[in-house]
């Protein structure tokens, strides 16, 4: 039982890391930084800014998830 939860946590942690790397790639791509384009805006917020803010919040959530998973990990 303990082994199964350990394997599940390791998989979840791997998923966290993959999502973080994907977030980095999206941040560097034209999806986040289309040259000279500020639309579509969100509640008046320019496109690049609201996407960057969303990606930043996503990283914060991943950090919280990662800290939960890593705290329970046995070395």
């Amino acid at each position: 039982m303990a082994d199964q939860s350990g394997v599940r946590r390791r998989r979840q942690w791997l998923a966290c890391r993959i999502v973080a790397v994907l977030t980095l790639l999206v941040a560097l791509s034209p999806l986040t930084m289309p040259a000279g384009i500020s639309n579509p805006s969100l509640m008046g917020t320019p496109y690049t800014l609201w996407v960057s803010l969303l990606l930043t919040i996503l990283l914060l959530v991943l950090t919280w998830l990662g800290s939960q998973l890593q705290a329970k990990r046995e070395d």
Binding site: L24, A27, M33, T56, L59, L60, G66, Q70, D75
Partner: peptide, 28 residues
């Protein structure tokens, strides 16, 4: 302009995630 958020806000959160990822390795 607003790209400065990506430059520092996003990269600081990358750094923080990295601490969860590699901080333990460092402490070991």
């Amino acid at each position: 302009g607003v790209g400065a958020w990506l430059f520092l806000g996003f990269s600081d959160l990358l750094m923080v995630f990295g601490i969860i990822w590699l901080g333990l390795q460092l402490r070991r």
